[in-house]
Simulated assay, not measured.
Amino acid sequence: MTAQKLVPSLLSRAGAVSVLTAAAVGGTLLAPGAAPEARAAGSYANTALGVAASKKGAPYKYGAAGPHRFDCSGLTLYSYKRAGKTLPRTAQQQYNRTRHISAASRARGDLVFFHSGGRVYHVGIYAGNGKIWHSPKKGSWVKLDRIWTSKVWYGRVR
């Protein structure tokens, strides 16, 4: 049952059920008329974002997918796995698996894909305000950085 259907049924049955009680029973609540995108990103995107942020300072290692070392797609794979979602291993495969969205539709927790010549070469998790959590390159570590180019695509994990 969706949160939109659950809340009215709880309210009609219990009369004065608080919003907090309804949220505890139903998970997330949406305001009437809320955009479907808010639902699509869901709590798993916020969880994945939190996992990525918790790995701040973990060293980069090519081919590593955690829990102590990461490459770029290893960080996104690990973060979403901890949030209950499965992603393929490489940045290009992850791009192919996500629902492609516009920059105007991006939300915290969406994936940010860096591309050149039509090929994806890097991925991070959107943190808001033009920033991403990512594991950039050899000699670096998981960190929060500004998006440094306009050559990015956005994807939402389904």
Rank of each mutant, 00 (worst) to 15 (best):
P36M: 08
V19D: 09
N46K: 06
L87R: 00
Y95L: 08
L29A: 14
Y60A: 03
Q93L: 11
A41C: 10
K56M: 14
Y44T: 12
A38M: 14
A35C: 05
H100I: 13
Q94G: 06
A24C: 07
N96I: 08
A14P: 00
P32Y: 06
R99H: 09
Y44S: 12
R69Y: 04
G84P: 10
G42I: 06
Q92P: 05
A91E: 00
S54C: 08
L77Q: 15
Y62P: 00
A48H: 00
K81P: 01
A53L: 12
N96M: 12
R69V: 05
A38H: 15
V19G: 08
G63D: 08
Y80P: 01
R97W: 09
R69F: 00
A24W: 07
S54V: 07
G33D: 05
N96D: 15
S18M: 04
S43L: 13
A64F: 02
R82G: 03
K81L: 06
G50T: 12
R82I: 12
C72A: 14
A31T: 15
V19E: 09
A91D: 02
T90N: 09
A40K: 10
Y60W: 05
A83H: 01
K55R: 15
R69M: 08
A24K: 14
L75T: 04
G74D: 04
Q92W: 05
T47L: 10
A38Y: 15
K55G: 04
K56R: 15
S43K: 09
G42Q: 13
G26Q: 06
S43F: 06
S79A: 15
T47W: 07
A22M: 11
V19Y: 08
S79T: 02
R39C: 05
P67K: 01
G66E: 02
G33L: 02
A83Y: 03
A48F: 03
P88W: 11
A91I: 01
G42E: 13
S18P: 00
A41Y: 09
Y78G: 01
G50P: 03
G66K: 00
Y44F: 07
Y44K: 11
Q94S: 08
S79Y: 04
R89N: 10
G15I: 13
Q92M: 08
A58M: 03
A16I: 06
F70T: 01
V25G: 05
F70N: 00
P59G: 07
Y80G: 05
T90E: 10
R39S: 12
K85M: 14
A41I: 07
F70C: 04
R13T: 15
A34C: 08
N46S: 14
R99W: 02
R69G: 04
A45Y: 00
P36D: 11
A38G: 15
A48C: 09
A14V: 07
R69A: 13
G66Q: 04
P88E: 13
V17Y: 02
G63P: 03
A83E: 08
Q94D: 09
Y80Q: 02
A23I: 00
R39A: 13
P32A: 08
